[in-house]
Design a protein around this nucleic acid. Structure first.
Lengths: 396, 396
DNA sequence: CTACTTTCTCCTCCTCCAGGACAAAGGTGG
DNA sequence: CCACCTTTGTCCTGGAGGAGGAGAAAGTAG
């Protein structure tokens, strides 16, 4: 089960591996244009990488007017496991070394059942993927969990929505089970990295990824790197106050953003609206299922339900208020809105945009795109795979 | 006039120069303990630095049980100029290579008079310092201006409180006049760097420096480096909204933090209180001078005036509200309160602390000190000098 | 078939740098 | 005062890192 994947011996090799990961197979000559190394040194390092098996020579490329080049690519047998643990669902995917998703499973789950049960499920899903033939073993795994993480140790700290996880040695436990290196991070951070690797944030180095799921969180990228803060709790914007003496929040405070918006708040508000007879459509749905979810509001909104649209707009305005403040403070080059909000999509985005553009400094918003994430549920698993590949593709 | 100061030839030399700057004179052996270099390589690099004249051998140190060591120190003739341009005053100082202040001048000034007049004044102050004998010439200069700066070019962009400065080539113009390299940054950023170099933030890598002067701004340090954002406007927190449909602000919006607090707002509120007869003390002062300044409120507060104390507490609460949000978002290891608030000091600090500790996430505030800056008005000039020394002490 | 381009390999030479040997210069205890 | 220790600094050698020229290999264009 245990795979001994080689590691690059120096920074040059690490650099080359990342170039091959992000740019796909390439010739020695083309790689030489992207690094500041002489041809001879480059050849030496690539030979060494070939010897370790991390990269392979893979046929000849078409001529570009001269001798045809040998393609160099990352070993096609490399496999990364990406796991995204949300509050209510779990995503597991297998990627190749270029972080292309080869297989992806999603299942509902309740994070409050605790780490043991959740990881049992995650490992079962991984086994299922392996049985399907996309992987024989894993060279590395990345995990996102819905709470703050002490990143170097890979241990959740004081996670509000998953109390049973506090201090559970996620990294060590999973590394044992999987027999490969494991990296653990906040789920918002891995989604942000996913959008940076393969989504809308490809060319941007300083940006914010705002995830609106059950709760609301924010991934912060500074110079292309995740910023995690002193305790790993950076980006925890769900409990920023938006109303003095406002609604009570589950965290014990009052007036938090999450008391007004996010999957939980939205479902609760929709149920109230249904019970009070303000929306026939939501009431009908409530009748059917006994309770409402954020998804139901999205469906109702798409069908034109005025109450549902109002709820989304109001939530977007609240969220926009907070984002406006963060934009003034952080002056990002891009704001990505992601999370389980497909369907809420453009109504929500419009409300957020209106609020941010009205409220932030002109200099900060002048050239600021605010867009929806383009990867949807794969953002997390791609980001998780990237996290572990960043680790493996760095000098040992 | 022009000084051709040598630059380090490589990263090792740069590292050594910074060690000598931050740790003072030192022996080869002690330096060797702080860098990962062999003794021989270290000796070579130090010899080269000695040849350039950037460092000098400076006598023998006391024995520590064996052969006495030769002290190595930065050239004692090196001089940096630090300039801190505020909204209403200008600070100019001269430091040696260890960034110790050798001479410091402060004068009132109105930034709206435009860059030409202001720099004429700054250069006159620098000349006065030179005439006093603390410097013969300058090896580098750092300037802080009260507005966003496009850092690589050293040009202010769209500064709200100093419209005449937009696009003025500060770096180039001053470099011409002074005959040395010049670095330009936002004044809040240089103050933050000052506190990091020689003040309360010495050991902290991720922190926020909140300056409450005429307006309110924030310096952001990530991993020990200033974060400036995509347009150089990061940290502009004075126009974060604290009240929906609140007081009109000079920026055209409503409910901004600066509409409620900061030197301008405080002076205005104090004048209103005086006119409405709510504070005899402030009214008396208004009678004397015709208008009130933030300073007058500080004096009244120290004397126990209830209205003045209330104004400060209220402003601190508003500011604390904003900081609380930033703390949740950024999870800093330290928050420093600085700016022209000496006197408001502990009343203000208490109000800010109360609000932040009440309102931010426990994980983010658990071990978070919120303290006053300890350098006062020298923070800016030291930070400015450090900015330019960071530049000079990096490979050419 | 010739001329030219591109890609890749091989070889030489130079610099960087670690670490051992050793010299210099002090202290300590008899 | 001398033998022996510690600390500091210098010198030397060998090995690894790396740049760049020469040229072979393999293609295109005419």
């Amino acid at each position: 089960m245990r795979r001994m994947t080689a590691r690059p011996a120096n920074a040059h090799q690490a650099r080359l591996l990342r170039l091959l990961r992000d740019g796909g197979p390439n010739s020695r000559a083309q790689l030489g244009d992207q690094v500041e190394l002489s041809r001879s040194k480059l050849a030496v390092e690539i030979d060494r990488l070939l010897q370790t098996g991390l990269v392979v020579a893979d046929g000849l490329a078409a001529s570009r007017g001269g001798r045809r080049s040998h393609n160099i690519r990352l070993a096609p047998s490399l496999r990364f496991l990406g796991v995204d643990i949300g509050a209510t669902s779990i995503d597991v995917a297998v990627t190749n070394a270029e972080l292309e998703v080869l297989g992806h499973l999603t299942q509902p789950m309740d994070v409050r059942e605790g780490p043991v049960a959740v990881f049992e499920q995650a490992l079962a899903m991984a086994a299922k993927l392996r049985a399907s033939g996309v992987a024989e073993g894993f060279d590395g795994a990345g995990i996102g969990v819905p709470g703050p993480v002490r990143f170097p140790e890979g241990v959740p700290v004081a996670p509000p929505i998953m109390p049973g996880w506090d201090g559970f040695p996620v990294r060590e436990a999973l590394s044992q089970e999987l027999g490969c290196p494991v990296m653990v991070d906040n789920d918002v951070n891995i989604m942000a990295q996913g959008e940076q690797h393969a989504g809308v944030a490809r060319a941007v180095r300083d940006f914010l990824y705002v995830k609106i799921g059950t709760g609301i969180g924010c991934g912060i990228l500074v110079g292309g790197e995740v910023y995690r803060g002193t305790n790993g709790s950076a980006g925890d914007i769900g409990h920023i106050q938006v109303e003095v003496d406002g609604r009570p929040c589950a965290c014990g405070n009052r007036g938090c953003l999450e008391a007004y918006f996010g999957g939980s708040a939205l479902a609760r508000d929709a149920e109230n609206a249904a019970r009070e007879g303000r929306s026939a459509q939501l009431a009908a749905r409530l009748e059917e299922t006994g309770e409402l979810e954020a998804k139901d509001v999205a469906v109702a909104a798409t069908a034109g339900d005025a109450v549902a649209l109002d709820l989304i707009r109001e939530g977007g305005t609240r969220t926009g208020q907070v984002i406006a403040g963060l934009v003034s403070f952080f002056n990002p080059g891009l704001v990505v809105i992601g999370g389980g909000v497909t369907g809420l999509g453009h109504t929500l985005l419009a409300a957020i945009r209106t609020q941010v553009y009205r409220q932030s400094l002109p200099l900060a918003t002048g050239n600021l795109p605010i867009v929806l994430g383009e990867l949807g549920p794969t953002a997390g698993v791609i980001g998780a795979a990237r996290l572990t590949s960043d680790h493996l593709f760095s000098p040992a």
